[in-house]
Simulated assay, not measured.
Amino acid sequence: MLWTVIILFSLLCLVPCWIALCKTPATISTQQSALRVYQSQLKELTNDLKNEFILESEYKQAQLEIQRRLLKTDSSVASSAIQSITPKSSVIVTGLGLCCIPLAAMGLYLINASPSLPAAPLAPRLAEQQEMNQKVAPYIEQLKVKLYNLSITDPKRIEGYLLLGKVEASRGNLSAAAQAWKEALNQQFDPNLAAQIAEIQTQAEGKISKDSVNLFRKALETAPKNVPWRELAEQRIAEYERSHH
């Protein structure tokens, strides 16, 4: 059923291309209209000569010019008729080429993908994640002990807490990640890190807190004007102010 839907959808996407290929050119009707105009001009010119509105020399000169235009139009009509026939002969070839596009796409999908592979159930993935967290937990505790014993002026302390925050965030423990990054922020202020902590705290708590707003405000005061998170910080501050007024 799925493959039938994919094929039908692919053919539906090709409909505009088929319409463009099969559309009859409108150049012939325009040129036929020009022929009728020139023929009516010849009739009017003949009537003017009969009524003695123009001289015979003027009549012959005008007639020669109109006949020249008629011959030119006839040749262009013939060439356009040939051109209108030529594309129709290649519609089949072009159509086959268009049909090859979805077929080639499905072929690449079958070669490089695994359409028959079922989706992984959620329970085994959660169990695997929990098992990974249990394996990583002892190393995290060791890192915390080492960081606790480092001097507050040691630059390695900042790097260690930044690493700890990343590990906790990858485990989904946003509160612990924010706490670790705060330790690094207290030692050396960084507006980007402050904004990141404020946003993570907001996500973990489900609302914007006063502490997060203060971090956003301080980050905006010290950060350049073109930082990518400026609009987000301003929205969070406005959200806090609306909820506390």
Rank of each mutant, 00 (worst) to 15 (best):
V5I: 13
A219Q: 04
Q201H: 05
G172L: 14
P87N: 03
F189A: 14
Q203K: 12
N47A: 12
P121R: 10
D190K: 08
Y240V: 02
L98Q: 06
Q31I: 02
T94Y: 13
K207W: 07
D154Y: 02
L162W: 11
K144S: 09
S80K: 05
L117A: 10
Q188E: 06
A127K: 12
V5E: 09
V77H: 11
L64T: 14
K218Q: 12
C17D: 00
S175D: 14
G165I: 12
D211C: 09
L71R: 13
T24V: 02
A219F: 06
G95Y: 05
V5R: 07
K50Q: 12
V15Y: 00
S175K: 15
L21Q: 10
T202R: 08
N47Y: 11
S243N: 15
D190W: 09
E52L: 00
A34Y: 05
D48W: 06
R236A: 08
T46D: 08
R125C: 05
W229D: 03
G160Y: 00
L21E: 03
E58R: 10
C99T: 07
P87C: 04
I82V: 13
T86W: 15
M132W: 07
Q129C: 02
L163P: 14
S116H: 12
K43P: 01
L12F: 06
K50D: 06
E128L: 09
I82G: 03
L42C: 02
T24Y: 03
I152T: 07
R69Y: 15
Q129F: 04
Q129H: 08
V91I: 15
P102M: 04
Y161C: 06
E168A: 13
Q196K: 13
Q134R: 10
K146H: 00
I7G: 04
S170Q: 15
Q67W: 13
K225F: 01
C99L: 15
L162K: 15
N226K: 06
A178P: 11
F216M: 08
E168Y: 14
L35F: 11
I85N: 13
P118I: 06
N112L: 14
I197E: 08
L108K: 02
I152M: 04
Q203W: 02
R157S: 03
S10Q: 02
I140V: 09
K23C: 00
C17I: 03
Q196P: 10
V37G: 02
Y59L: 05
G172H: 14
R125Y: 12
L45G: 01
P138L: 05
L98D: 06
I92V: 07
I28A: 03
A233N: 08
I237N: 01
S29Y: 10
L232T: 12
A194K: 08
N186V: 08
P115V: 11
S151K: 04
G165V: 07
A123L: 13
A169M: 11
A78C: 04
Y161H: 10
L126E: 05
L122W: 00
T202Q: 03
M132K: 12
P16T: 03
Q187F: 00
V5D: 09
P224K: 00
A177M: 08
